[in-house]
Design a protein around this nucleic acid. Structure first.
Lengths: 245, 245
DNA sequence: CAGTGGTCTAGACCACAGT
DNA sequence: CTGTGGTCTAGACCACTGA
């Protein structure tokens, strides 16, 4: 055993088990070691072990039930709730090639939906980024991001066609801490249709997103529209429903 | 204060705090009582209190940070990761009136997508339920559910226009334990359009769902199509998820 | 029945917030 | 600094699983 990271023990246990599952050390339907075995192996008490198992459960990797050890539910976290990882990382995990074609990066006054989402006044400036995102070279999504001015101004030094904007911002001290997504469907506008190479009026899966940084401040509002033939969102929720309520 | 249910203490704490938040006892941005205050109030140790707070965090109701008490993030328990609530319950929580108009309940051989999702042979029988779901009397969603035969046959004794199918099945020993959702967009078919009272070709938000019972067996496959003007899905996901202790 | 996970307690130490 | 939440331990009891 190496690794005496600064990671909390429960995170270390979760990370190790997650790797084993992704590496297919266990088959689907197979049981993980018992909790007490994991306690022994990692030299921790039951608390951190159970916290790690809860994490993997929330990721859709395992299923928990009383009286018997955890069971592997899926090998890849990609198809599960981690769909809400940034586009570039998501594509990489799925073995696809992600690309970007930037249409514009503009500093202007906030649009009305952005004002509401970012809690800004009509006179406040924001930075709008309009990009077409490509999967294996094919247009798969059109992304309209709006950043608050202090964050958006960082983007003028960044080649929005290369690399991950998420990683770039993280390097500048802006971390995505939590996101809220609203999913619905819209008909493709003329602009959408032209940039995605589809017919106007085609159904698109829309994700409207507000992102908060580590201090809980909203700094991004985005309207992403996906071609449903190419991208779908997958969500797993493993949870026993409470009788009451 | 009533309820000394057989609910676990952490569930009781979570339920009570959830009600207070929905009831707007705390404003958005306001702090909840400290953990030790909650321990005193509910007469429990920190473990259950922290587990309850983790639940509310996963539901997107509160935000946690180190060194200061939990902060209210939202008043609405919308469709979050942990609470992908059945239609009827979701409507009730949001103060809407849910209704159903059953088009057909039929026992027949499984369609191809259902065969795949339910892991059945082409010769196996299933029970299909086609319903229009109403919100405040207006058609909001068209639901095509397919149940494995053993579960579906229970439904012939059930008035699918009244009450909650989820509750009914739970009463017969079939519990929804985990679900997987795939979200995308489709153009309304002629059948969709007619039943929802919209134009054919209109964009609809589609949710394809496979549900497992408490033994991990898939027993339902559903294709639900929502009118995006009336219903959208809201999902909150935060960086670190950490129940337990 | 023995073993397992689900829950809970009563302590403890650390990192961080606000004063 | 004090108080807060984040983490951890070492016990314990109960409900369920499976031989």
């Amino acid at each position: 055993m190496a690794s005496s990271d600064s990671l909390p023990r429960h995170a270390h246990v979760a990370s190790e088990l997650r790797q084993r599952i992704i590496r297919r050390d266990y088959l689907i339907g197979e049981s993980l070691p018992t909790e007490s075995a994991l306690c022994t192996e990692f030299g921790v008490s039951r608390g951190p072990v159970r916290q790690a198992l809860a994490t993997l459960k929330n990721e859709g990797l395992i299923r928990l039930s009383q009286g018997k050890p955890a069971v592997v539910r899926s090998h890849d976290a990609t198809q599960t709730l981690d769909t809400f990882t940034p586009f570039t990382q998501w594509a990489q995990r799925n073995g696809r090639t992600a690309g970007s074609r930037t249409v514009e990066v503009a500093r202007r006054r906030a649009s009305e939906p952005a004002q509401v989402a970012l809690d800004l006044a009509a006179t406040d400036f924001v930075v709008d980024v309009l990009r077409v995102r490509l999967l294996d070279g094919e247009p798969a999504m059109i992304e309209r991001s709006t950043f608050i001015d202090s964050v958006g101004s960082l983007l003028f030094d960044f080649d929005t066609d290369s690399g991950s904007m998420t990683d770039y911002l993280a390097g500048r001290g802006v971390y995505f801490d939590s996101m809220e997504h609203i999913l619905d469907a819209v008909a493709a506008s003329d602009v959408d249709a032209e940039n995605l190479g589809i017919a106007a009026g085609s159904p698109l899966l829309r994700e409207r997103r507000t992102s908060r940084d580590q201090n809980g401040r909203v700094f991004e509002y985005a309207d992403d529209r996906y071609r449903p033939e190419l991208v779908a969102f997958s969500i797993v929720n493993a949870k026993t429903i409470d009788p009451r309520m």
